[in-house]
Design a protein around this nucleic acid. Structure first.
Ligand SMILES: [Mn+2]
Ligand SMILES: [Mn+2]
Ligand SMILES: [Mn+2]
Ligand SMILES: [Mn+2]
Lengths: 220, 220
DNA sequence: AAATTAAATTAGATTTAGCTAAAAATATAT
DNA sequence: ATATATTTTTAGCTAAATCTAATTTAATTT
């Protein structure tokens, strides 16, 4: 059974809100994520349930099914591949790609995605550091730690961000904290948890605990 | 005023059926081209007329307006740029690109098209030899002659096809009559107008008048 | 100039995706 | 255990894009 563009978007939202299928998700949360009203969500849940991509018990939230997870991961795969294309080939900045990818992810053509993947050299991560599922939906996740949880003097590499808003991404660009940057925790202010970070062994930057909590690092 | 995907598709059909705005177009012709029913077309014509991209007098067919022509050319530009991308970068065959481009042409992002154009090195023609309008809607058309109208012993280069069906394109691939091939008219059978053609100075092929009429050539 | 045929429009339904307002169910607090 | 608050669903409406069937207008033949 085919999904419409709206159904794909809802399913992706449910996948994300449920942490990849582990939690149940509420109508209100979906409405918040999709920027629609709860009444519209109730309607859509009935449709997604009919198509057996979610399990739906009225008043008790939804679970995504195995089939639903597979579908969501395919859409996420397409989204992230297009983001890589936009950044690597068309020189988009990493904060300019999400909206366009949100449209491109709905183009129906398995051949297109296969060829795009090959053309991009089978990338494993998108420009925000999020993993790209393979064509079977398998994801190679790296263990990632929020920067604010790292110990003093620890080193690592920035691999992803939790907040992908354009404002946040532009701020990171400004201070040089791009994906791939090597960092070291130089100091932590006990009072508010803010940090002093060494970036790429050459630049010292200060950031609030809040900012650091949105930066994900692989420790090394 | 923004156009929906359906409106863009109808407007493009009207542009083509009217030979770029020169002829008036009938409801039935549009229905044929769009594979919808005349009743649906009447509905859509009212909408397009409200948005002032066509001039519509009930029962007397439609004319595309200047604004409509501009919009149609933008969509055509996007369609053809995507086709170049699919063939040049993703190694699609020229008979595999049309359907996907029919979806990709509706992605809304001026930046995307600007960057794609640059990335493809500002191509002037799509894989079927059709000209790509520039961002102002200007088209550099080459004077083209159907192969069946060429005189004996004349030479030229295949630059486009009238029929873009996959079946026809595959046939052309098989006989080596791809876009860019140099050809010479060796013989014409008076009885049925069929032709013998020398392709790339090395291969002799025979083709019916019907086939030749769908191949466009620049004479040289 | 009628009569017939063809083309186009209108009327009325359906599906998808949204909305608001009202009702119902569940959760929380006294 | 009630009362209150919150969440969720239902009912009813709108807009887009289709359809079929009926009607109207225009074009073509006799
Ligand atoms: Mn994204
Ligand atoms: Mn999307
Ligand atoms: Mn095409
Ligand atoms: Mn299209």
């Amino acid at each position: 059974m085919n999904l419409t563009t709206a159904e794909e978007n809802y399913l992706k939202a449910i996948y994300h809100l449920s942490d990849g299928g582990s939690k149940s998700v509420s109508t209100n949360d979906i409405a918040g994520e999709m920027k629609t009203k709860p009444a519209s969500v109730s309607d859509m849940l009935r449709k997604l349930s009919d198509k057996e991509v979610i399990e739906y018990r009225k008043y008790y939230g939804v679970h995504i099914t195995e089939e639903g997870k597979k579908r969501a991961l395919q859409t996420i795969r397409k989204h992230r591949l297009w983001e890589v294309f936009l950044v690597d080939k068309l020189n988009f900045a990493w904060d300019e790609v999400h909206e366009v990818a949100e449209e491109l992810e709905h183009i129906q053509s398995p051949l297109l995605i296969q060829r795009l993947d090959a053309y991009l050299n089978y990338p494993k991560f998108d420009p925000h550091g999020d993993p790209i599922p393979d064509e079977y939906g398998d994801v190679r996740a790296r263990p990632r730690v929020p920067l604010n949880e790292m110990d003093l003097d620890q080193t690592g590499q920035i691999v992803a961000v939790k907040d992908s808003s354009a404002a946040f991404l532009r701020y990171l660009d400004k201070v040089g904290a791009y994906i791939g940057a090597r960092i070291k925790v130089l100091d932590r202010v006990e009072f508010d948890g803010s940090l002093e970070i060494l970036v790429d062994n050459k630049k010292n930057i200060f950031m609030s605990k809040d900012v650091a909590g949105n930066i994900l690092v692989i420790q090394s």
